[in-house]
Amino acid sequence: MAAGGSILVVNAGSSSIKVAVFDDGLRATLSGAVTGIGGRGEIRLGTDTRAADLPDHTAALAALLEALAGQGITLADLRAAAHRVVHGGASLTRPHQVTPEIREAIAACAPLAPLHNPHNLAAIDAIAELAPDLPQCASFDTAFHAGNPALATRYALPDIEATRGIRRYGFHGISYAAMVRGWTDVTGTALPHRLLALHLGNGASICAIRDGRSVATTMGYSPLEGVTMGTRTGSIDGNAVLHLAETLGIEAARHMLNHKSGLLGLSGLSHDMRTLEQADSAAARFAIDHFCYWAARHSGSMIAAMEGLDAIAFTGGIGENAGAVRDSITVRLAWAGDVPVHVVPAQEERRIASDAAALLDGTA
């Protein structure tokens, strides 16, 4: 392990792993991805791309480490591997260096995020096998919202064994934490007292940030709740979900709600906002309008949670790049007053690297 070496940031999904390398000054030096895990896949690192057999996450990360070495970054050059973990539950409310106990706590949260945590954990286990002496750290998407008040997090359910752990957790917390940390450097202004932050991408959420802390957010028990998203419905009546489960079966209903709905379901064309903006169809226009309407409507709820509004910030792929979408949302919020609107580039990976550096330096 290099004491002042680079940090490898790992964001693992079911069939892909995104990576970035940050030097000891937290500057990104290289990025890439492994796709097609589970079969014949592809490794992209910087400008180099090659095909490879990638039966599982261990094979994918082994190929990735080999590719890094080919570009002059060996295990000896790495200080740590730092992971994005989607769900930390009620106990993992800050970044942690991965120990056997933390690994088990991440695994215990897998039922809360079955589409995410098992894959995050697979990458942690793969690196532990491939590079057992390399420290690993984890940052949690739920952690930024851990201080939300009980009024914001509790569903109106009875307190019985069956409802244990069912509460609003919130997600995209690493993105929001990065926004708060880098606010002045990016905008040249002081962090507003009441900031409405919209992380808009294929997954989308909104956060009410008061004095740098989350007080409410739109995602809930899972990343399904809240605004219209690329393939997720956003908020939907529980009885409608039960009807779908009874009609289609639980797994088919789950798949529809998470993978076949949102912009894709409304347009019948695509989950990609760029494709919809270029399409000349009523369904595509309706999907975009639906996205903007519900983003503005949920924003009103976040403004109420903050008891006012001093600034708006957009981040994420859609938030940063779709100017017409930003305009449509802000026009619908004109009633809240004439406040500054900022576009803040997402810096989740840098935040994860920063968390890891702080843990290893003992300054976290």
Rank of each mutant, 00 (worst) to 15 (best):
D23S: 00
P100N: 04
A146E: 05
I106N: 00
S16Y: 12
T153D: 11
A110E: 09
D141R: 01
A63C: 04
V34S: 03
S14I: 05
L65K: 10
R79K: 02
F140K: 02
T93E: 09
P111G: 06
A108E: 10
T93M: 14
T74S: 15
A76Q: 09
V34D: 01
P118M: 00
A138Q: 04
D24Q: 04
I127M: 14
K18Y: 10
L64S: 06
F144L: 07
H119Q: 08
A52W: 08
L64M: 10
E129G: 14
N11D: 03
H116D: 07
A62L: 10
V9E: 03
S14M: 12
R27W: 03
G41N: 06
T74E: 10
F22K: 01
H145R: 12
T142Q: 04
A150S: 13
A143Y: 07
L75I: 05
V19Q: 07
D141I: 00
L65E: 02
L78T: 00
R103T: 00
D133A: 15
A128C: 12
P100G: 05
V34P: 07
L112Q: 11
V86C: 06
E42R: 15
G39N: 03
V98W: 11
D125C: 11
D125R: 13
Q71S: 03
D24N: 10
A113I: 01
S31G: 06
A67S: 11
H83A: 04
N11H: 04
L92Q: 03
R44D: 01
D53V: 08
A123T: 04
A82V: 01
P114H: 00
G72V: 05
A150C: 08
S14K: 06
D141C: 02
A152D: 11
H116L: 03
T93G: 07
N11A: 05
A82T: 02
L121V: 01
E101Y: 13
D133K: 14
T29C: 00
L130T: 05
V21Y: 00
Q97V: 15
A108Q: 09
A59R: 14
T58W: 11
G39Y: 05
N148M: 15
N148H: 15
I37D: 07
H57D: 07
A80H: 01
D56T: 11
T99E: 08
A90E: 15
P149I: 13
D53M: 09
V98T: 02
L68S: 09
G72E: 04
